[in-house]
Design a protein around this nucleic acid. Structure first.
Length: 417
RNA sequence: GUGGGUGUAGCUCAGUUGGACAGAGCACCAGGUUGUGGCCCUGGUGGCCGCGGGUUCAAGUCCCGUCACUCACCCCA
């Protein structure tokens, strides 16, 4: 085969379309229910937007971005995430002048040059929700609930939030310092990756998966005990809201986000039978990011959820969407005059909004019927010599096998019943 | 970037210690009913056995390389 799809990309075939249609429908319904408006930023932006937005020390920026120069020698990058582009859109189009919060969402492809594995691709489709300009913990609850409701309506069982606070510039540095000090006293016990993390991204130490690191993690200082008063109060109120709604959650001290810009709330939604690596979504608050990208100091919170992962999980959990409807009518024909009648009829049916298709070529009636059967047609209309002479159509019900002869002028009204 | 597994028909896979034209099921096409589907039966289309090199009288089978897929790590949705 000469051409094949690029590593880490995939084709969505007809069999999978019902999943996509269902998820798109639920997204449209739920975002409307919560009052979020759709925006669609372009899929590439100036590279510097992502470098500043995502944070300089993460792998995403260092080696995972699809960065290229265009013919004008501008450095552009296929978006590796949504948030930075959203903020640019928000600032550029004056959405920041609207009353707060400004609540938006989008669905579309994002790109990262990673090694593909289960539920991970170089191009994947992300559902992203953001709320700008509101710091009330009830805002956090609302954004989290959008994600929750999507998975609940798709039929996932045993949903649970994983929740943590990652602090703010006032308190996090102190915590990180404590964490580093602690790890300095356990250097001989930790893995090589963790030694690297200690220098680069100390919070990441906490979700190391190496067995020998687990005892060290277990007795490490916990961030929720080192929050400043502002962050601690915010966290407490969010938990009270979750309790109020009786939404199950686990305080997960090991839950940290890879991107530098997160502050306070970080969360994931887990579903039954799905491991921590298959969190349905990841999100959190980023109260400093908008200012960092050139706006007024503005709080923000959002999440991203990979559609391919949702579908993967739906398949694992045997959550099947309804099949998309097939054509109702197949028009079969034997002989050249009959084919002309078939052509006219199939167009007439479609203009009456009846889904119809005709068979092509000179084929036996048997094979045309097989095709109708395969397509799950409700009716097959047969044209041959007899129908041509009498100006009628033979209409056969594919479910019960009954058939009637209908005068052509009455055909549409007969089938509309 | 690191490590493990796997590459044979459109799909799922068999191919015995290297040995004769490379197989099955499903799918597709045709016939069994020259105007009637699903079930059944018969036949057919379809493979440089991922690619390149090597060993050998002989390679789908063994060796090396490479690419791809896949799982895990790193990182992250």
């Amino acid at each position: 085969m000469k051409y094949k799809s690029v590593t880490g990309t995939r084709d969505v075939l007809p069999e999978e379309q019902p999943y996509w249609r269902l998820i798109e429908k639920k997204i449209a319904e739920i975002t409307a229910l919560f009052g979020y408006q759709r925006v669609d930023p372009p899929i590439f932006e100036e590279t510097s937007l992502f470098i500043r937005g995502v944070g300089e020390t993460t792998d995403i920026v260092e080696k995972e971005m699809y960065t290229f120069r265009d013919k004008g020698d501008s450095s552009l990058t296929l978006r590796p995430e949504f948030t930075a582009g959203f903020i640019r859109l928000y600032l550029q189009n004056g959405l920041h002048m609207l009353s707060k919060p400004v609540k938006v969402f989008s669905v579309g492809p994002v790109f990262r040059y990673e090694r593909p594995q289960a539920g991970r691709f170089r191009q994947h489709t992300q559902f992203n929700v953001e709320a700008f300009g509101e710091q009330d913990p009830a805002m956090d609850l609302e954004v989290m609930s959008v994600a929750w409701q999507l998975y609940a309506e798709l039929g996932f069982q045993g949903l649970k939030f994983q929740l943590n606070s990652t602090g703010c510039p006032a308190c996090r540095p102190h915590y990180i310092e404590k964490l580093k000090q602690y790890y300095q006293t356990h250097l001989h016990e930790i893995c090589e990756d963790c030694k690297r993390r200690l220098e680069r991204n100390a919070l990441r130490l906490l979700d190391c998966k190496v067995a020998s690191c687990q005892p060290v993690i277990a007795t490490a200082p916990v961030i929720s005990e080192h929050l400043c008063e502002d962050c601690a109060t915010h966290f407490t109120h969010l938990r009270q809201h979750l309790d109020l709604l009786q939404r199950p959650y686990t305080i997960n001290h090991k839950l940290v986000r890879g991107l530098d810009y997160y502050t306070k709330t970080v969360f994931e939604v887990w579903a039954q039978g799905i491991g921590s690596q298959n969190a349905m979504c990841g999100g959190g608050r980023y109260d400093g990011l908008i200012e960092q990208l050139g706006g007024e100091p503005t709080p923000g919170i959002g999440f991203g959820s990979g559609i391919e992962r949702i579908i993967l999980s739906m398949k694992e959990q045997k959550l099947q969407p309804e099949l998309l409807p097939g054509p109702q009518i197949v028009v079969a024909h034997l002989g050249p005059n009959a084919e002309k009648m078939a052509v006219e009829t199939v167009f007439k049916l479609r203009s009456s909004k009846i889904p119809a298709l005709m068979t092509f070529g000179d084929r036996s009636l048997k094979s045309q019927m097989r095709e109708a059967n395969r397509l799950n047609a409700q009716f097959i209309i047969i044209f041959a010599d007899h129908e041509v002479e009498s100006g009628t159509a033979t209409v056969k019900n594919m479910q019960d096998g009954s058939q009637v002869e209908i005068a052509l002028p009455d055909l549409v009204s007969h089938l509309s019943k």
